[in-house]
């Protein structure tokens, strides 16, 4: 099980985050958003940690925000 959290910090100091927790790399899960969610021009309701990371990286570029990504936990099994 891993939990991936992506956080954008805007120039005015406000933040918005998306978090998703999955059991295996082949899973999608509902994304839990927090902070200034209204500043996100698009969101995925459900996805994988990998896609969430790319989405937030793209948003960071587009919105001129700083991004921070953390992964907690690990995948133990082979694919």
């Amino acid at each position: 099980m891993i939990t991936t959290t992506c956080t954008l910090t805007f120039k005015d100091g406000t933040t918005v985050a998306g978090r998703v927790a999955v059991e295996t790399p082949f899973d999608d899960a509902h994304v839990i958003y927090s902070g200034h969610v209204h500043r996100l021009p698009r969101k995925l309701a459900k996805t994988s940690p990998a896609v969430l990371r790319v989405m937030f990286r793209n948003l960071a570029r587009e919105l001129g925000a700083e991004i921070n990504i953390t992964d907690e936990g690990k995948f133990d099994v082979e694919e």
Binding site: V51, D71, K74, F75
Partner: peptide
């Protein structure tokens, strides 16, 4: 290649694996 128990080159792959 966190969060995997694997070794490799991380680059900018959309998925570390």
């Amino acid at each position: 290649l966190k969060p995997y128990a694997a070794k490799g080159k991380k680059d900018k792959w959309y998925e570390p694996y």
